[in-house]
Amino acid sequence: MSSPLISARGLTKKFDEFVAVDAIDFDVAKGESFGLLGPNGAGKSTTMRIIGATSQRTSGDLTILGMDPEKFGPQIRAHLGVVPQQDNLDMQLSVSENLYIYGRYFGLSRKFLKAKIEELLEFAQLEEKRDAKVESLSGGMKRRLTIARGLVSEPEILMLDEPTTGLDPQARHILWDRLFRLKEQGVTLIITTHFMDEAEQLCDRLVVMDKGKIMAEGSPAQLIKDYSTKEVLEIRFGSERNSEMANQLRDMCERIEELPDRILLYHEDGEVLLEQIYSAGLHPKTSLVRRSSLEDVFLRLTGRTLVD
């Protein structure tokens, strides 16, 4: 394997005394799609901004495209496409002007941009809004424009911070499709998301962060294998009885998670476990057997669910 495109060692960011990113190590290879997962405040966006060569790290080593962002910020950023968590469009400009001006920031020519803007408007499904002021767009439309804007320079590395938050299912799938195609063309993707299906779909490899630290790293399948059982049984006894029942069930499975509305029982074979529960004379109101997902890994590692 050639040397990694991004390499971080002991990467740390402090805001005054507060440690937002705590000595993390990771590498990202060219063409890889790398995910950052973690609960609110884990330090994902802070990490993204540091990799984006804007926010300055407090300590540690970082190279991106072989350069140190502290010394070569503009040279690195020339090859990044950034979709920040919060849209930061130019509200005084129209939709197409936003794309044009952003392209100008990369020194791209008017001729190139003219064709590029058409393509991006189509991708973002904003052709009809091309002359509308950004202020008048809906939240999802602004999001789509921000994503399209990040593609204007045909970046080597595309960084997406919760890209699909606020998008409808159709727009999400259009984006996923686009990202797959970019990946096929060798573009490196860095993604944070709170949607586990998205992470499973898009990421070759991901890290789970919490409180500024990396808790685990691996491919989605590997993480599920390492941190969860093959199957999960979800049962409900009704919110008052859940915790009482959980105590009785604890010994029947590998691990148990009590959520406000349901109990998750981790077991290699959910149906077998359910049989055992019935034979023990317990009768949950509802039950569901499913395969483990990243959601379960996340819960295990951070003690938090993603959808509260």
Partner: peptide, 28 residues
């Protein structure tokens, strides 16, 4: 155009941005 992608390494000249970036901002 996705299929005709050339990539930033080819289409972007960071020296040009370093020397003219202020003008791009002024243009905006």
């Amino acid at each position: 155009i996705v299929d005709k992608r050339r990539g930033s390494l080819e289409i972007i000249d960071s020296k040009k941005i370093i020397s003219r970036g202020s003008l791009y901002v002024a243009q905006a």
